[in-house]
Structures are given as C-alpha cells and as structure tokens.
Simulated scan of single mutants.
Amino acid sequence: MLDEEGMNAFIEKHFTRSAFRLEVLPQYTVDSDQGNVTSYLAGDPEPSWAHGGPWFDHLAEERVAGRRRYRVHIVTPPLSDYLRYECEWGYVYTTAAGEEVYILDTSETPPPTDDLLDHDWWLLDDQHVLRVHYDAEGRFLGAEPLPPSAAGVHRMCRDALMETAVPFGDWWSRHPQYRRKGQDGAL
C-alpha cells in the first residue's frame, strides 16, 4: 500500500498522456483543506489562491503539454457541505486552469454500471490503476497499485461514466441551490 507521497510519485511516473480519477465520496478529510472548508461555510470571501498559484499553474502546464487530467465525481443530493465547498472553491477554479471535471448526479442519471463504483481509483495512461482507500470520514489510508490485467475493466467503466456524466460547468450552472447564500441566489 502506498502512502500519499508514494501515490503521488506513482501518478507522476505513469501519467504521460492521461490521468482519470473516479471520486465517489461525499467528503474528503484533507488536513490542508480544513481551514478553507471552515472559511467557506462561514461565508468568508474566496481564498487568495482561487485565481492562481502553483497547483493551477501545474494544471495549465499539463494541458499545454497535451496531458489530459480528468475526473468524474458521482454525487447524490443533497450535497454535503464538503461537496459544496469542493465545487465552489475547487472545481470552479481547477476547470478554469485546465482540469476536466464531470459530475454524475444520481438524482438525474443512474450510474451506467455497478462495477467499480464503490471506491475511488485512478487510471493512468489507460494502463495503470490505483485503487485509493479512505476511512469512513474520508481520510486517505493508502493507494494500492492493481495488476495490469485490471486496466481493461477500469477503461470500460471510465468510458461508460464519461458517456453519462456531464461537464461540471453545465451541471453547476443548473444547480445554483448549492452555492453559498449571496453567491448567485442559493442557500
């Protein structure tokens, strides 16, 4: 099992063309996010990093280099406070920087399959799979590289998800109710 540093090294090594991620949790407990989540819920203005910074520069550089980073997040309304934060203070900005984010809202579209949708995973360059493990509160426990034979079924799942999920911007524009009060009329 890889720790966070090992997972990041594995992704960097095997991501030369494409990095797909499936996210299924309603909350991720990331120590570096907790202050931002609290600020978001308190109604504070967006953070200074929202319009730039090293991560956004990195995403833009990947895109310019022809490397595709994309994800599908499966959500079931009502959205958790964390997912509202992740959409409004995360995906809005990462998509502007070059990441592709898609939403599969189970209240609008049923998942295309039951296979492989009970955990998070990465598919790198269509060949390398990492299964990501979290505890019940969404804390990262480790990432498990799967054998090469696992890539085929993960590609099929990814393709089915991409046929049914919608681009984040389209989904977000149809759901102003998830924004903070005063942010385009919600909550």
Rank of each mutant, 00 (worst) to 15 (best):
M1R: 13
M1D: 11
M1F: 10
E4P: 03
E5H: 13
G6T: 12
G6A: 11
M7L: 14
M7C: 00
A9T: 10
F10M: 09
F10R: 08
I11G: 10
E12K: 07
K13N: 05
F15M: 13
T16K: 12
T16D: 06
S18L: 08
A19T: 02
A19M: 09
A19P: 06
F20S: 04
R21P: 11
R21A: 03
L22Y: 07
V24E: 14
V24K: 14
V24M: 13
V24W: 14
L25K: 11
L25P: 06
L25H: 00
P26W: 03
Q27N: 12
Y28F: 14
Y28D: 06
V30D: 09
D31L: 13
D31K: 13
S32Y: 11
D33F: 01
D33W: 08
S39L: 06
L41V: 07
L41W: 01
L41N: 11
L41R: 12
A42W: 05
G43D: 05
D44Y: 03
D44M: 06
D44S: 03
D44P: 02
P45N: 07
E46C: 00
W49M: 10
A50T: 03
H51S: 02
H51M: 06
P54L: 07
P54R: 06
F56V: 02
F56T: 02
D57V: 06
L59K: 06
L59G: 01
E61R: 04
E62K: 12
E62P: 04
A65H: 05
A65Y: 03
V72Y: 04
H73F: 05
V75C: 06
V75Q: 09
P77F: 01
L79A: 04
D81F: 09
D81L: 10
L83H: 04
R84W: 00
C87K: 01
W89D: 00
Y91P: 04
Y91R: 02
V92K: 03
T94W: 05
G98H: 05
G98L: 04
V101F: 10
I103W: 02
D105C: 14
T106Q: 15
T106R: 15
S107A: 14
E108G: 13
E108M: 13
T109K: 14
P111I: 14
T113D: 04
T113P: 14
D114I: 12
D115F: 13
D118M: 11
H119N: 10
D120S: 11
W121M: 03
W122G: 01
L123Q: 11
L123F: 01
L124D: 02
D125P: 13
D125H: 08
D126S: 12
Q127G: 12
Q127Y: 05
V132P: 00
Y134M: 08
D135R: 00
A143N: 01
E144A: 08
P145K: 05
L146Q: 13
P148G: 04
S149N: 01
A150L: 14
A150S: 15
G152K: 15
G152Y: 10
M156Q: 15
M156L: 15
D159I: 15
A160N: 02
M162D: 05
M162F: 01
M162K: 15
E163R: 15
E163V: 04
T164G: 03
A165T: 14
F168W: 02
G169L: 07
R174T: 06
H175F: 08
Y178N: 07
R179L: 06
R180E: 01
R180I: 00
R180A: 04
G182W: 01
G185W: 07
A186S: 13
A186H: 11
A186T: 08
L187N: 08
L187P: 07
